[in-house]
């Protein structure tokens, strides 16, 4: 599979994901199943790493709460609202009150950004979210096999 194809798939997925999220935005609390993604292909950095086939549904059951990963609003590591965006009544209602989950890349820079040193890059954010629980699983190293053992697709690199 060449990288263009991967990118296309990733883009499709992201569009679909965004659409799903917006569609369910009005009533997120009611009947989470079906509104939440089942499997997500985390591939926005696919040019660097093999994309990760992330079983979201499975993790919903094992993680304590959404905040464990989606920390941006109310999670343990959450910065203050103003730390990321200007807050007004509209944005408050839209984001906080409605509890909508935002894509990680919205805050975390995809690559090194000298202006956002206080925020981990997207890749680091993903890794932190996963490794915090999976710390001693597999051999976390640079060998693609090691990374693949845990998350990354082995065909990459």
């Amino acid at each position: 599979m060449n990288s263009k194809a991967v990118l296309t798939i990733v883009l499709c997925w992201m569009v679909a994901l965004t659409a799903t999220l917006y569609a369910g935005a009005e009533a997120p609390a009611a009947g989470p199943k079906g509104k939440m993604p089942g499997k997500v292909l985390l591939g926005s950095l696919a040019d660097k790493h093999g994309p990760v086939n992330f079983d979201h549904e499975k993790h919903v059951g094992t993680a304590g709460s959404c905040d464990e990963c989606h920390h941006q609003h109310g999670g343990a590591q959450a910065p203050s609202c103003g730390g990321c965006h200007a807050v007004d009544a509209t944005s408050f209602r839209k984001n906080v009150h409605l509890g909508r989950i935002r894509p990680c890349g919205e805050c975390h820079p995809a690559s090194y950004d000298a202006g956002k040193l206080d925020r981990p890059t997207l890749s680091a954010a993903y890794h932190r979210a996963c490794i915090n629980c999976h710390r001693e699983v597999g051999s976390v190293g640079t060998d693609p096999k090691g990374c693949a053992e845990m998350c990354h697709e082995s065909s990459a690199r």
């Binding site: 090194y112 000298a114 040193l117 206080d118 981990p120 890059t121 890749s123 680091a124 954010a125 890794h127 932190r128 490794i131 976390v140 640079t142």
Partner: peptide
């Protein structure tokens, strides 16, 4: 090293900014 760190544990930047961070 900074670019390779998957955990973002090594941040590169102006020393003054890093102290603030």
């Amino acid at each position: 090293c900074s670019g390779a760190c998957p955990m973002g544990a090594i941040t590169f930047g102006k020393r003054g900014t890093l102290l603030k961070v």
